[in-house]
Measured scan of single mutants.
Amino acid sequence: MDVFMKGLSKAKEGVVAAAEKTKQGVAEAAGKTKEGVLYVGSKTKEGVVHGVATVAEKTKEQVTNVGGAVVTGVTAVAQKTVEGAGSIAAATGFVKKDQLGKNEEGAPQEGILEDMPVDPDNEAYEMPSEEGYQDYEPEA
């Protein structure tokens, strides 16, 4: 019985440690998101679009440190934060509304985080759909 109880105690310690790591990862992701939003706020009209992409990228980098179902929630929060940063930029006159959601080359930025393969159960990952990809044929 002692062996059984000791095993359960060790398992509990492992769960607590994993929860603490997840909590730490979420806190880091939130900190990076805040950094990115402050970065966007300090940019001029020309830099705002690039700044919004930076927020998304920093958040995406930190999301990889967070495991399990938390990833889905962090990704949703990050996307809403990026959308909010863009709205703030438009409201303050840093950028025109028609410039939001495009990178410096004018290509749409939507789907940055949505296409990231995420499995809350950590069982399997699927690649994003290939609808947006084109076949590449090298020139002879």
Rank of each mutant, 00 (worst) to 15 (best):
M1C: 00
M1Q: 00
F4D: 00
M5P: 00
K6C: 03
G7M: 10
G7W: 07
G7C: 15
L8K: 00
S9W: 14
K10M: 12
E13L: 01
G14M: 12
V15D: 00
V15E: 00
A17V: 12
A19E: 00
K21D: 00
T22D: 00
Q24N: 05
G25L: 05
E28W: 04
E28G: 10
E28M: 09
A29V: 09
A30I: 13
G31C: 01
K32E: 00
E35F: 09
G36H: 15
G36W: 09
G36T: 11
L38N: 08
L38D: 01
V40S: 00
G41D: 00
G41R: 07
K43E: 01
K43I: 05
T44N: 01
E46Y: 10
G47Q: 12
V48K: 01
H50R: 09
H50C: 12
G51E: 01
V52E: 00
A53R: 15
A53N: 07
T54R: 14
V55S: 01
V55N: 01
A56P: 01
E57H: 14
T59L: 04
K60A: 02
E61K: 06
E61W: 10
V63G: 02
V63E: 01
T64A: 07
G67M: 14
G68I: 14
V70I: 14
V70P: 01
T72E: 15
V74P: 01
T75H: 08
T75F: 08
A76I: 07
V77Y: 14
A78N: 01
Q79N: 09
Q79M: 12
K80V: 08
T81V: 12
T81Q: 09
V82E: 02
E83M: 11
G84Y: 12
A85S: 08
A89C: 05
A90P: 09
A90E: 03
A90I: 02
A91S: 04
A91Y: 06
T92W: 11
G93S: 06
G93E: 04
G93H: 06
G93R: 02
V95K: 04
K96P: 05
K96H: 07
K97C: 15
K97E: 03
Q99S: 13
L100P: 09
N103V: 13
E104H: 09
G106H: 05
P108E: 08
P108N: 06
P108G: 09
Q109V: 15
Q109P: 12
E110F: 08
I112T: 14
I112G: 11
E114Y: 06
P117V: 13
P117S: 03
P117Y: 11
V118D: 04
V118E: 14
V118Q: 02
D119W: 02
A124G: 14
E126C: 07
P128G: 10
E130K: 10
E130D: 10
E130A: 05
E131C: 09
G132E: 09
Y133M: 11
Q134F: 10
D135C: 10
Y136S: 13
Y136P: 14
E137N: 07
E137P: 05
E137L: 04
E139A: 15
A140H: 06
A140K: 13
